[in-house]
Write a protein that binds this DNA or RNA. Structure first.
Lengths: 249, 249
DNA sequence: AACCGCTGGTTCACACAGTAAACCAATGAG
DNA sequence: CTCATTGGTTTACTGTGTGAACCAGCGGTT
């Protein structure tokens, strides 16, 4: 087996990130690599302060906060979030609900920023969560700004349902996308988590390419159909404001 | 020069994170490595979806959102933030100001989470920001929970002033630390950014070790000395609640 | 034009870094 | 007391990553 050491290193980081706390043998097995290799990679990564030992047993491996600090600054992550914060705050005040900013990573969106509602009952999604394109307000909004070819490849993947109300039929999703394009914003009732409704709009860079999306999320009891129009207009406007500040991909 | 390839890979990631957008030659010069090595590292990292080309010139290198997604989950970053969110929200409601959660990374703290105030005038600090221990409410609070030896090594470093009001004299900082220990919370008026006052308290794990700190931050015009007592008690209580949920380092 | 200093990217032979298999010591379950 | 784990170490070999030298393209200056 010929592997670049840096490839294994990255795999180690990602595996630890996902499975932590995790022990050496477990990790080596999961990576299908020898323990010696795995351990040496672990120790060098520890020297670089990306990993550390700890956890229940004291010998398990964990990701450090250094990894976080490095990741947050960053391309779209840094500049787009910076540009988005102001408009997102304003949208939070206007809607009084939770505001999400999502950014694409491969075939999913990643929750990049969240402005919380003061309400006790609220939608909750951890930062960094991977959000499937077909199952969320942000995702559907993002798709609606993609080219037909991109949409097709996105929908050609297996579309796992997240809740009982998740759209999984490509044809229905396509219909929904054209609806979104006409309407200007997406509507997702319980598709990502039960009882949560969200309205989303795509953020376009100055050249028109989709670079993320914003959404308003809250309990379906508060975000009722009669408020869709007003709230949808707000998200749409917010997405426009953010995109207009953002120069390019 | 003999270097591990994974070490250079990590250095590349960190350099790109810090300097992006950045070109090949620039990067190689900054890393003191050959362009060949640098480029191959860049391309493998791009294959792993951690980096991508783009930016103004189209050939500059950027960090992807994938790096962020990997970093956020993670050790202290994940579990502690999860445990802290509830109490932080409550503290936000009680104080009506911005709440910060900071976690140690080497010799600084990293801003891990932020709950914003609805006020238009508010303190702002980007997630992932590196916060010097001696110049912030969170930092001083964290120091106050460290052992004397740890404090000494921390204060033996060069203490750069951030504002004109930053404490840089080790003796004065030590005095402040004992004051914090008696008082139960830290007070920082304009030490990190002008016009911002913050009150912080250390978060201790069940075994008593400091693992982070929380703070209330806002304009000095709103966080006035007559409110220090009440607000300080709130932060302190919040830090205790968070720590009591958190098992161990 | 020719020259310059730069850029991103490529090629190649050699050394050394990274690999896997075998091996230890310690722990916990049966 | 076995047996199967665990984390960690040692080894000799091999193939990966290394840096120097090399292209080609670009924008100014002369």
């Amino acid at each position: 087996m010929s592997t670049h050491s840096v490839v294994t290193a990255i795999k180690v980081i990602e595996a630890v990130s996902e499975l932590q706390p995790i022990g050496l043998s477990d990790l080596a097995r999961h990576l299908d690599a020898s323990k010696a290799t795995t351990l040496r990679t672990l120790t060098t990564l520890a020297e670089m302060r990306w990993l550390q030992q700890g956890g229940p047993t004291g010998t398990d491996w964990l990701l450090t906060s250094h990894a976080y600090a490095v990741g947050v600054r960053g391309g779209a992550m840094g500049t787009l979030r910076e540009a988005a914060l102001g408009p997102m705050h304003q949208l939070q005040l206007e809607s009084t609900e939770t505001i999400h900013l999502a950014i694409p990573d491969g075939e999913v969106l990643i929750l990049a920023e969240r402005i919380d509602t003061p309400h006790a009952l609220r939608a909750f999604l951890a930062l960094g969560s991977r959000i499937p394109l077909h199952a969320s307000g942000t995702g559907l909004a993002f798709l609606s700004a993609c080219s037909d070819a991109e949409i097709e490849t996105a929908l050609s993947r297996t579309l796992d349902p997240v809740t009982t109300q998740t759209l999984t039929n490509p044809a229905k999703i396509l219909a929904e996308i054209t609806a979104i394009r006409n309407r200007g914003y997406s509507i997702n009732v319980g598709g990502l988590s039960d009882g949560i409704t969200s309205l989303g709009a795509p953020i376009r860079s100055l050249n028109g390419r989709p670079i993320g999306s914003v959404s308003i999320s809250g309990p379906s009891s508060r975000i009722t159909p009669d408020r869709f129009g007003a709230m949808g207009a707000l998200v749409q406007e917010t997405a426009l404001r953010i995109g207009s500040q953002y120069p390019d991909l």
